[in-house]
Amino acid sequence: MSNATDGFPLADDSASLPPMPAVPRSSTARMIADAVRAAIVDGTFAPGAPLRQDALARHFSVSAIPVREALRQLESEGWAKVEVNKGATVALLSAEEAREIYEIRSALESLAIGLAIPLHDACSLRTAESLCKAAARELDPSRYVARNQAFHLSLYAPVVRPQLAEMIETLHRRGERYLRLKFGLPLHKGESDAEHVAILDAVRRRDVATAQSLVAAHLLGTGDLLYRFITERAQADAAQAEPRRARRTRASHSGS
Rank of each mutant, 00 (worst) to 15 (best):
T5W: 08
S14F: 13
S14P: 06
L17M: 08
L17K: 03
P18T: 04
P18V: 06
P24L: 04
R30E: 10
A33L: 04
A39F: 01
T44N: 01
P50D: 04
R52T: 06
R52W: 10
S61K: 14
V67H: 00
V67Q: 00
R68W: 04
R72I: 13
S76P: 03
S76G: 09
K81L: 14
V84S: 12
G87N: 00
L93Y: 08
R105P: 00
A116G: 06
D121T: 10
C132Y: 01
A134I: 08
A136D: 08
R137K: 14
A146S: 12
F151D: 03
L155R: 02
Y156C: 09
Q163W: 14
R173D: 06
R174D: 03
L181H: 05
L181A: 04
L181P: 03
H188K: 12
D193Q: 10
H196Q: 06
H196D: 04
A202T: 00
R204N: 05
V208H: 04
S213E: 02
L214F: 00
L214Y: 00
V215E: 00
H218T: 05
Y227F: 15
R233C: 11
A236G: 07
A238H: 11
A239K: 10
A239P: 06
R244L: 15
A246I: 14
R248N: 12
R250Y: 10
A251V: 05
H253T: 15
